[in-house]
Amino acid sequence: MEVSSSSRRILASLLETRTGQQLAVNRNWRIDTALAPIMREHRFENLDHLVTKLVTGSSPALTEQVIEALLNNETFFFRDKLPFDLLMGGPLKRIETARAAEKRIAIWSVGCSTGQEAYSIAMTFAEQEVRWRGWKIEIVGTDISRSAIGRARAGKYSQFEVQRGLPVMQMVRWFGEEGEGGWQISQKLRDMVRFEVRNIVERPPEPKQFDMILCRNVLLYFAPDMRRLAFSRMADALAPHGALMLGAAETVIGQTDRFVSDAENRGLYVPAAAAAAASRRVA
């Protein structure tokens, strides 16, 4: 299907104003494959008809459906295993020490999509039962996509999703069969995680201050000023001893001055203010 350049521009600006995501020039193919099911469902003859309907603003539900279809929701369990393990090593120890008195840790998965990242964190804690006995571990997943959050809350995954990245031992331990080819994550893990629909540039969710923030593969297609805003939202929400984890192909360098690389843990970031204070103490 041809996507006319005016339709493309309108869709791109709709997506960017609502989510911050830019539609890359070479992603024309994505528009028609992504919107094909919606076109069929609502019997639009071509994309221009759909776009015309969006422009009149008469159907907010349709607009939301279109935006969600244009978002890339790809995710899987234990994505980027090495940096993930790194985060759960030294940085988590540092956090454990800092929180020893209140025995409370809060973790924010930003752009959590269908929840695999948040549940991977929950599994990691649940598998260290003795270490975290008596602690309150609060894991919050947020995403702008209502349908993704709905699926995350349900914690039900297809056969394809459940085996991607997840070792079979953990699958057997934490999932039950649910209907034909469906896999339901355990209640114990569901009780550790809360999901909310939220745009990253809005205020952070409760408890407002986090010890770890994971924001992976979300800011890739943000325009630079939106990215800077997103980083400052996260910097405001991260405790001084906290850690930020980005996707394997992402960095803060040249994007924000609120975070700096964690000298001891490659691929992780710490609040710039805290790093500066620490180096003043050393000096």
Binding site: Q159, V168, M169, M171, V172, G176, E177, G181
Partner: peptide, 10 residues
């Protein structure tokens, strides 16, 4: 593709 088979294999 069911848990019983998976457990037996492990």
């Amino acid at each position: 593709n069911d848990l019983a088979h998976i457990r037996a294999a492990i």
